[in-house]
Design a protein around this nucleic acid. Structure first.
Length: 155
DNA sequence: GCCAACGTTGGC
DNA sequence: GCCAACGTTGGC
């Protein structure tokens, strides 16, 4: 990836836990609680300004609900040090943190959420990770062309 | 609520 | 290092 080249991602959240409306209200949030190495590694690749498809998982239907952007690149998740937190990790130390967060900001909400079923049946989105069977990863890379198609579908 | 698809853990 | 058991995610 060339320096300065904008990248695109999809980030999943259960709307009952944190929805696009919560992000709209908050304007900006720490994406805390990622406890999967592959997802963490993708977060570490994120650059300020990258585009994010905000996806509602475990929703009815599951759908892309809006657009966000990266405003702060990966830094340690304070919850891993908090013994009271469900995200506490006894292996993590301040010197050697294990888990990171990024900060994302609200950009816009889709006029209508774009259901997973529609993404799957859109030929031009073929190969998009979220449409593949068993795609549980909570953070996924998205191709520029796919991001732009989905963004257009939501406006 | 079911279950497929993973990821993680721990015994060996 | 292998792999069975277990836990979690998330669509349906």
């Amino acid at each position: 990836m060339k320096k300065g080249m904008k990248q695109y991602w999809l980030m999943k959240s259960e709307p009952g836990a944190y929805s696009i409306d919560d992000l709209k209200k908050d304007k900006c949030t720490h994406w805390e609680g990622v406890r999967n190495y592959q997802a963490r590694n993708y977060m570490r690749l994120m650059k300020k300004g990258d585009g994010v498809l905000f996806y509602h998982s475990n929703a009815h239907p599951p759908a892309v609900a809006g657009i966000a952007k990266v405003v702060k690149e990966a830094y340690p998740d304070v919850e891993q040090f908090n013994t009271k937190s469900k995200y506490f990790d006894p292996r993590a130390t301040k010197e050697k943190p294990v888990w990171d967060v990024v900060d994302i900001a609200f950009v816009k909400k889709c006029k209508e959420p774009i259901p997973l079923g529609v993404l799957k049946s859109t030929n031009s989105l073929e190969g998009m990770v979220v449409t593949q069977k068993g795609s549980r990863l909570s953070i996924q890379p998205v191709l520029k062309k796919h991001f732009e198609i989905v963004e257009k579908m939501g406006s």
